[in-house]
Structures are given as C-alpha cells and as structure tokens.
Amino acid sequence: MILTEKEIEVLEIIEKDSRIQTDVLAKMIALTPEETKSIIEKLEKEKIIVDYSSAINWRKVDGHEGVTAMIDVKVTPKRGVGFDEVAERIYRFPEVRSVYLMSGAYDLSVIIEGHSMSEVAQFVSGKLSTIDSVISTTTHFIMKKYKHDGTVYEQDDEDHRIVVSP
C-alpha cells in the first residue's frame, strides 16, 4: 500500500511514542485533530498499525522477573505451505511472544517467556520438539536486557567523560 507523506509521518511519530495525544500529533504534522484521527483510524483498519504496546522492565519488580529464551528451530518445510504452517502451530502457544523466519543455520527463531528455566525446558521438550516438522532446537536464555525495540532499559546517568582542565 502506498502511503502519503503525512501518513508516514504519523507512523514514525507513533512508533516512537504510542501514547502521544492526537491534538499534539496533529500540531506536529500540521493537520487538524480530526484529519489526524482519520489517518490513524485508516492505518489501524488496514492493519498497518497492528498494536500499541508498553516496554516494562520486569527485573525491577520483585517476584516478576521471569525468564525469556530465544530458541533457534530447524524445521522441515511442508510442500505448498513452506514454513508458514509450522510457524503458526508454534505461535499459537501462549508462552510464545515472537516467531521469525530466519536466514542461516536455523529456520525459525522463537522467543518465549516463562516463570523459570525449567518451565522453558518443559515447553521445549514437551511442546516444541514434539511438532512433526521440528528437526532440532537450540535454546538461549536472555540474562539481561540492555535495549529492546529501541528502548534502553538501564541507562547509567553518570557522566563518564574524562575531565579536562587547563
């Protein structure tokens, strides 16, 4: 779909701040709030704007740290549907946050969240590995998030520049 310059501007601004108020956004792109609202509704209807989300640093909330794992999956594609059918079977599990078709040694990259490492291990052995097309998996546990979707999680406000004096 070809978008207008104003529609592209709306997308770029909303991508950085999905909580921006329509009247503020309208001023930024030099349109009326009604025109801006109409653009947003069109982009939502066309599924260009898919969702609005928040980035939460769960490590700072006691008892809610959880475990995130990235799982590389080697798959045998099925005739006529390729990787789509197995990807759909995988993303239907509630633990799964993301599924990507990848180039390289593995076909799919799956990101899941669980309460513990053993819960993730149970998912891999009991659900993921039992899917017919899955040949092998490699699981990587995320130890710490520094930056996710453009958001820096733990920024050190201390100034690390070298002091220069005459």
Rank of each mutant, 00 (worst) to 15 (best):
Y52I: 00
I39M: 11
E9F: 08
L43R: 10
D23L: 02
E113A: 01
L101D: 02
A55L: 11
T4S: 15
K145Y: 14
T4L: 05
K47D: 12
F83A: 00
I2L: 10
H160V: 09
Q122P: 02
P166H: 05
H140L: 12
S133A: 13
K144R: 15
L128H: 06
E158N: 12
G114S: 02
D17Q: 07
E12K: 15
M117C: 01
E34L: 09
R89G: 00
S116M: 10
G126A: 00
M117Y: 14
I56W: 10
V67Q: 08
I142C: 12
I135C: 07
T139N: 07
I71P: 07
K74S: 12
V24S: 07
I29A: 02
E34G: 00
L128Y: 07
I71G: 03
A87H: 04
W58K: 04
S53H: 08
D23T: 09
E15L: 10
T76N: 13
Y146H: 10
V75I: 15
K145L: 02
S54E: 13
V75T: 03
E15D: 09
Y52D: 04
G104I: 08
T76W: 12
H160Q: 08
E34A: 05
K45E: 14
E65D: 13
V96H: 09
V152I: 15
P33T: 01
V73G: 03
L128R: 07
M1V: 08
I40T: 01
D159Y: 11
P77L: 02
S54C: 01
F141A: 09
I56E: 11
K74Q: 10
T151P: 06
H160K: 13
R89L: 11
R19T: 05
T32L: 09
K147V: 05
V75Q: 06
Y146P: 01
G150Q: 06
V81T: 15
Y100A: 01
D72S: 12
I131C: 05
F123H: 04
E95T: 01
V110R: 03
T137S: 09
L128G: 03
V134R: 05
G66C: 08
S116K: 10
Y153C: 04
K78M: 08
Y91L: 06
I56R: 09
E44G: 00
T22Y: 10
P77Y: 07
H160T: 06
I29Q: 08
E85M: 02
M28L: 14
V73N: 03
S98D: 13
I111D: 02
I142A: 15
M1K: 13
V120S: 03
S98H: 12
G80H: 08
K6E: 13
V73A: 02
Y100R: 09
I8M: 09
M28G: 00
Y153P: 03
K42S: 04
E65F: 07
A69I: 08
Y106W: 14
V73M: 06
L3P: 12
V96T: 06
K37A: 02
Y52C: 01
P77G: 00
E35M: 11
A121N: 12
